[in-house]
Design a protein around this nucleic acid. Sequence first.
DNA 1: ATGAAAGCGCTAACAG
DNA 2: CTGTTAGCGCTTTCAT
Lengths: 337, 337
Amino acid sequence: MARTPRKPAPISAVAELAGVSVSTVSRVMNRNATVDPEIASRVRKAAVTLNYAPNPLARSLVLGKTTTVAILVPDLANPTFQSMMRGVSRAAAKDGYRILVADSGEIASEESILAIEMRRRCDAIVLCAPRMAEDLLADLLPALAPAVLINRDNAGTRTPVLTADYEAGVRPLAEHLYGLGHRRMAFLQGNPESASNAARLRGLAQFSATHPDTELTTIECGTAFESGHEAAAEIAGSGYTGILAFNDLVAMGLLSGLAELGVRVPEDISVTGFDDIPLARYTTPPLTTASVPVVELGEQAWLRLHALLREETPAFDVNYRPRLEVRGSTGPVASRR
Amino acid sequence: MARTPRKPAPISAVAELAGVSVSTVSRVMNRNATVDPEIASRVRKAAVTLNYAPNPLARSLVLGKTTTVAILVPDLANPTFQSMMRGVSRAAAKDGYRILVADSGEIASEESILAIEMRRRCDAIVLCAPRMAEDLLADLLPALAPAVLINRDNAGTRTPVLTADYEAGVRPLAEHLYGLGHRRMAFLQGNPESASNAARLRGLAQFSATHPDTELTTIECGTAFESGHEAAAEIAGSGYTGILAFNDLVAMGLLSGLAELGVRVPEDISVTGFDDIPLARYTTPPLTTASVPVVELGEQAWLRLHALLREETPAFDVNYRPRLEVRGSTGPVASRR
DNA sequence: ATGAAAGCGCTAACAG
DNA sequence: CTGTTAGCGCTTTCAT
C-alpha cells in the first residue's frame, strides 16, 4: 500500500538488486562517468524499486560539503531577522542549499559556541547582527569562514559585510520632522550597547550640530512593542512634538499607547519608526519610517557566500542607505495655543 | 594570534599528539568507557591544543542520529509560522537539538520532496500546516516518521497532531459580535482550499444555524495585509457592521483601509481578527481576536518528537481551543439612523 | 585499560 | 566501461 518504504535503502542494496557494484550505482546516480545505457537503466530501475536516494550525510562526509548554510540570529521573533532569514533562505534554495537556523536568544555568550557548532554542520554561515564583543568576533571569524556578516562590522577581518546605514538613515527622518516645524524632538533609544543604536545616535548628533535651534533628547526605551507602549505616558506629557522611535516595533507600541491616552497622531505628536517592516504601512496612521531592504540584505548575503564557496571573489561590501518613507504618522507641528 | 586554527583537526591528529589510539581519544571525548586518568588528561590537553571538536557529520553517520530536527513551513514571512518555529526551536535547543528550516513557498507540490530531503538530514520533522492533498500526506507520513503535524490532520496515520481548533474558535467571535447587536456580518475568507479556512466556515455555519436572525456572508479575500486592505472599499459601503477577518493580518489591513476611507472602528464597523499575533494588541484600535497559542504548539510539537525519538509514547494529541480576546476593534452596533 | 579492526554510506582514484 | 580499493571522521565491538 504505502509506496514509500519506511527505511531508506543503502546504495549497496541497489547494487545488489541490479547486480552491479556500488561504484556503478554511484556513477549512474551522479551521471559523471559514462555507463553502459543498458546497465544504467537497470540500476535506475532498482533504485526506483527500492525508493533509493543517496544518504546526504554520507555524501557530505566524503564530499566535504553539505549544501547547507547556517544562519545565526539574535531573536527569531524579530521581524527584521525573519526577513533576513527569508532572503537568505529563498536565495540559497535557488542554488539547492538549505538553511540551518539558530537563535541565540540575544545572549552574546551563546553566540560563539552556537556559531562554531552550526558551522561544522554547514558549508558556510551568515551571522546576523552578532552581539558579541569586537575582539571575540575578530578571532571567531577566521574559524568560521566562509562567512558573511549582516549589520555588523567585520572587526578588521576580510569577511564580507552587508549593512544598513543607520547613521545616514536616521538623519532624513529628523530632517523630515524639522521640515514640518518640529523643534522639540525625542529619540527613543534601543539597546545602548548595540551597534545600530550607536549609529543612530551618531546620525542624530550630526543633525543636532547643524540644527542648533532644535532640542533633541535621548530617552531610554527598548526595542519592542511593549517598550514603545510603556513610553507613551512619558511622551504624552513631555512637550515633545516629534518622536523618533528606535524602530517600527517601538513606534507601533507608542502609537497604540498614545491612542489609548487620547493623544492624536500626527495632529498632537508626530512619530517615526525605522526599518519599514511589512506592517508599517498598515498601522493607524501608517508609519513614517526609514525603509531598510532586509530581504535584500539576506539575498545579497547568500550571493557573497555562494561566491566564496566557489572560490570566486565576492561582490563588494555594501552599506544600504535607508530610504525615507513618508506616511501618515508625521505632520506639521501643532500651532501652540 | 588567532586562538582558533582555521581547519578543525581530525581525531587522528589528537591521537597522534597524545600518543594514543583514536579509540582512546573517542573514549575520553565521550566519557563512556573507563580510561586511565593520566592518559585521559593527556588526551584532553592535546584536544585543547588542537582545538579539537568531533566532526558532527561523521558522528551522525556512525551514530545514525544528527540531533537536528527539520521544520517545514509554507511561508517564512507569516508571523504564525514564525512563532511555531520559535516554539520548536527554543524547546529543541534545551535538549541540544538544532533546527533545519525550509520554506515551501506555499507550493504544495514542493512539500513532499522538501520534506523527504530534509528528513534525511535530520532525526525527525515537524510539518506546519502542509498544503498537500490528504492522500499524498497519508503515504508520505510513514516515510517521514518520527514526525509531528501542526495544524493539519494526520490523514489516518499515527502521527501526533497539534492543532488549533479554528472551528470552535470562530464561534465566540461571532457570538461576541452578535452580543453587541450586530446582525449583518461578513466573513473575509482566506484560501478556500485550506483546512483551517474550511474549519472556520464550519464554525460559522453552526453559528448561522443557531442565529437565523443574522445575515452572515462569506467574501473572498486572502490571508495577508494587502487582501484586507483591498477589501476595505467593498466593506465600507456594504452595510455589514461586523466583519470577521480570516486572521489578524487581514484584519489589520482592513483596519488600515477603513481608516483611510474615514470609516471609524468600532463606531461604524466592528472588526475581529484571528490568531492574536504579537502586534494585535498594538493596532489602533487594538484588535479583538481569537488567541491561538502558536508558540506552545511548537513547544508541544517538540515534546512529542522528543518522546518519539526516545521510543517513548508521546503525549496525547491536543486541539487548542482559541480564547476570545476582546479589545477595542469591536463595539456595539451603531444605532441605525 | 587500550589498540586493532570493522563499518556507517558514499565517492573517487586506480586498475583492468 | 566496470569492479576493487581506499578513505571521509568517527564509534564500537573484539581481542589483548
